[in-house]
Amino acid sequence: MFGDYSLGDLAAIFAMQGFAGLILFSVFLLMALGLAIIFGQMGVINMAHGEFMILGAYVTWMTSNFFQAYLPALFSGYFFVAMILAFLASGALGMLVEWGLIRHLYKRPLDTLLATWGLSLILQQCYRSIFGAREVGVDLPQWMLGSFQVTDAIQIPINGVFVMCLTILITCAVAYVLYWSRWGRQVRAVVQNRVMAGAVGINTERVDRYTFALGCGVAGIAGSAFTMIGSTGPTSGQLYIVDTFLVVVFGGAASLVGTIASAFTISQAQSTLEFFLSGSMAKVLTLLAIVGILMLRPQGLFSLKVRK
């Protein structure tokens, strides 16, 4: 399949596809971070995670419309406001869902699976009723349009670079919160032994609620980033949920490094293969490779070595 291209062409193709893959990597990673917090840390399989992301995307869209209509002078900075609002909206919805639904279903993974699946259908219909079935697109501010011309053959879009910087920043923030903050220690203690965590003085219910909210909030930010690479519709989130689970399981649940490595591998494989093969063949090859690796290493790419 490489035969028709010259060496220089190939290099340019790999560079550009690699970069396109990096944007996909950003969305995967942000989605997977939220899911890894919720699934890896709390053991809850959240099928509605895609819908939390789409909520973030709709919030971004609404913010952009608001700025266009009422504050056109500040339009170039709307995205930062939108991100914060997306985080808060998805986080608040997550907190509500944890309180109303999830907390009654801990230790019942299959029931959570069904309940959150139902929740995702409800949310989709809500979006359809409120925002309409047509997909909406967000106008980007002027400074995010265009691209850096690296060489004659290689162009790198500015919004892609922006999304990536954003992702790196948020990943670092999440890592800090989970591994170095006082609150993160409480989360990890609750995850490992809920009863014992309570018996050393940790309010486990509150920790659960805020952990779930954080996971959903990060999905909301993923939604903000998503508006730059795709158009937002009621069911757009569903397309990403399977891939995201794949990222989390392949990376090894409860491992942040694993999640990053696996999001990178999967998105790069996907993006590069897509150029040379059809989209579905690329998917088949990626999936086959992952299935093979998981058969050899069921615990995922990275896992802690600790006496059980």
């Binding site: 006082r182 409480q186 990890r188 203690a189 490992q192 032994n193 050393v200 940790i202 802690l304 006496r307």
Partner: peptide, 16 residues
């Protein structure tokens, strides 16, 4: 908490 370090284990008690 077996996956946490010794220091982190003790620090979980500091919350109270």
């Amino acid at each position: 908490f077996s996956a946490m370090t010794v220091e982190e284990n003790i620090e979980t008690g500091l919350v109270a």
